[in-house]
Amino acid sequence: MLRRTLDRLYDAGFVLAALALVAIAVLVLVQVAGRVIDRSLIALGREPVGIAITSLSEMGGFLFVGAAFLALAGTLRAGGHVRVTMLTDSLPVPLARANSVPVLLGALGLCGFALYSAFVQARDSYTFEAVSFGMAKFPLWVPQAVMVAGLALLAVALIDGLVALLRGQTPAWRAAEAAKKGGTDGH
């Protein structure tokens, strides 16, 4: 039951990340279509309609950050993060597993620090009602809260992998990497 819940949580992060990318594409498409329509009207000697999305680059940036952070956990589980495995691949399985535990603890520590920092920044932005600098004023705590959610999800995925290692199981990213290579992996 917990495994299914965690997998759905990671999948939800992927879906939200994909939706953020789709939103970027739609916004850019509307902006480009607006420019084409306006230029066509000008070429025909008519008044342009003025279809423009205020602060498009800022909105796109916020959506892109959301997509990147929300996809972190799912990408880790799918074996999509760049990892240097030359050492662990050359070690016997028990040593490779033992080496992976402190590495995961270090990754979890770094993720925890980033999570704490992002949370403090989002809380401060909310408390002081900070807004973006563009023409359209967006409350900064909203994209920052998405960063916090993505980092929290990554921390859960790291803990998930650490628990799997400590139980003698293969973490999801190792299984995914092994499947890509066409073999099995014991660590």
Rank of each mutant, 00 (worst) to 15 (best):
D11E: 15
I37C: 05
F14P: 05
L21K: 05
Y126F: 14
L76G: 03
A149C: 02
P94W: 07
L6E: 13
L19R: 11
A68T: 13
G80Y: 06
W141A: 04
D11W: 13
A23S: 12
L151S: 06
G168I: 05
F69L: 10
G186V: 05
N99S: 04
L153E: 00
I42M: 08
R83M: 08
G134Q: 02
Q144I: 02
T184C: 03
V103R: 14
A23L: 05
L70I: 02
V82W: 15
W141S: 03
R123K: 12
Y126H: 15
S100L: 13
M135P: 07
A172C: 06
P94C: 04
S55N: 06
H187P: 00
L153R: 07
A25N: 03
P48V: 08
D89P: 12
R174P: 03
T85N: 15
T54Y: 13
A52T: 11
F64Q: 10
A155P: 07
I37P: 06
V15D: 01
A122S: 08
L91I: 07
R83W: 00
Y116T: 08
D124M: 13
G45C: 12
F113W: 02
R39M: 03
P139T: 06
Y116E: 10
L72V: 01
V120Y: 09
R83A: 10
S90R: 14
P139W: 08
N99M: 03
L166G: 13
V131Q: 13
T85Q: 09
Y10P: 00
L41Y: 06
I24W: 02
T5E: 13
A107C: 13
A96E: 11
V82C: 14
I42W: 14
V120F: 14
V36Q: 08
L9Q: 03
F14D: 11
T88Y: 10
L162F: 02
A176L: 03
A52Q: 14
A155W: 13
I42F: 07
G74C: 00
L110H: 03
A130K: 15
A172Y: 08
V103H: 14
A20E: 00
G186C: 06
L91E: 09
S57C: 11
F64G: 06
A122Y: 11
I24T: 02
G134A: 14
R174Q: 15
A73G: 03
A107I: 10
F138C: 14
L105Y: 07
R8G: 15
L70K: 07
W173Q: 04
G13K: 12
L76I: 04
V101I: 02
Q144L: 07
M147H: 10
V65E: 14
